[in-house]
Write a protein that binds this DNA or RNA. Structure first.
Lengths: 202, 202
DNA sequence: TTATTTTATTAAACTGGTTTAATCAGTTTC
DNA sequence: GAAACTGATTAAACCAGTTTAATAAAATAA
């Protein structure tokens, strides 16, 4: 039973990869074979500060949030939900201890591939290297639009946009994490919500 | 004479590429052959809104700034100076008209490779594809640290950091562009500078 | 179910920026 | 060398956020 479900997630991962570029069936299956499933319970951490980051991850189900402690304050950089790749890239690339937490905000299933398996495969296969490039390019573009909005939009606009683009997030994640993600205090976000609710009625 | 100078810049570009990954001499020379030099005079635009972005660029000399007009205001996203790659990636990737300007803040020399030449070479060569992936990864990490600072640092800290990391920029670029890059008005930046100068004396 | 803890809202005082407009200093242009 | 621009500073009024602290509401545990 569990193995059936597990197989479904690998199917999603497979489709995700194929959405970037063509990869031969055998090669792709071999690649998928490197992934191991990790179940992360709500509140558990996948990575904490000081740890090395030796894997690249894929969220099959659930939500992982990526944050750091800055003078005792949680600073959320990103939420990773279903069907997206993630890792702590700075630590992963530089092979230095992480400064971040990767924590599950709900019961979560991720698939992990080790850096050595990943890099070796990239070296051996042009197709996989290409997948690596294109997925990195997509990641760049996503973070780019974020910088764009950070410099062009007000906090209220960014909140409304989040509400529109990722409506699920506000259901599954506490509001103070959303506030942190938006670069606000919980108090500040509450004021914005109030302002919106007032301007909407009437 | 000009051709000698020109050759030097290609040498820099060559070394830049080799800093990411090994590429066979012949292949690399063939790749370099696709680049054409473009001289951009101070104040000239390489790209403006509405244009298609069909090249990936390398700054050999000078400074290109990347901005958009938002309600008549210049919003600067980045300054590209010597030995760095750039393009308007969203437009380049999606093949849609640009929303941005790429303008020279001083007389500038860039090298440009067309998207078709670039993509074809990536398809044909695993080594070049790898270069593409690793340079994209580096670009991601740079913009990532920027998002990190946008959420963790004050405007004053970001100004001081820019002063430290890219001291040349404040000499070669007018202050109101720096202000925009930092997400401030010229007035705001002036106040910050005043605050700093006061706290430094005594 | 009640008690406890966690999360969200509200209020009041404050702060680091904005906007607008005036002034000042350097550069260009003629 | 005066006139006309461009860029930087200053001042005053303003505003969207913060901080701190109290309260309310919701979730969790006993």
């Amino acid at each position: 039973m569990t193995s059936t479900v597990s197989k479904d997630y690998l199917k999603n991962l497979k489709n995700k990869i194929l959405s970037y570029t063509e990869v031969d069936e055998d090669l792709l299956n071999h690649w998928l074979g490197y992934y191991k499933r990790i179940d992360v319970k709500k509140g558990d951490t996948l990575i904490s500060p000081g740890q090395m980051v030796e894997h690249f991850y894929y969220v099959a189900k659930g939500c992982i949030y990526y944050y750091k402690l800055e003078e005792g304050e949680q600073k959320v950089l990103e939420f990773y939900t279903e069907d997206i790749f993630f890792t702590d890239l700075p630590a992963y690339v530089k092979e230095t201890p992480s400064d971040y937490y990767l924590k599950a905000s709900e019961n979560t299933i991720v698939y992990a591939i080790s850096k050595s398996d990943g890099e070796n495969s990239f070296k051996k296969s042009h197709q996989l290297e290409r997948f690596g490039r294109l997925s990195m390019q997509e990641a760049f573009m996503k973070i780019f639009t974020r910088v764009e909005r950070l410099s062009n939009r007000t906090n209220e606009e960014r909140y409304l946009r989040l509400l529109e683009k990722r409506p699920d997030l506000l259901q599954r994640v506490p509001q103070y994490l959303i506030a942190s993600y938006l670069g606000l205090t919980p108090v500040g976000l509450s004021k914005i919500r109030k302002r919106i609710s007032i301007s909407q009625q009437s």
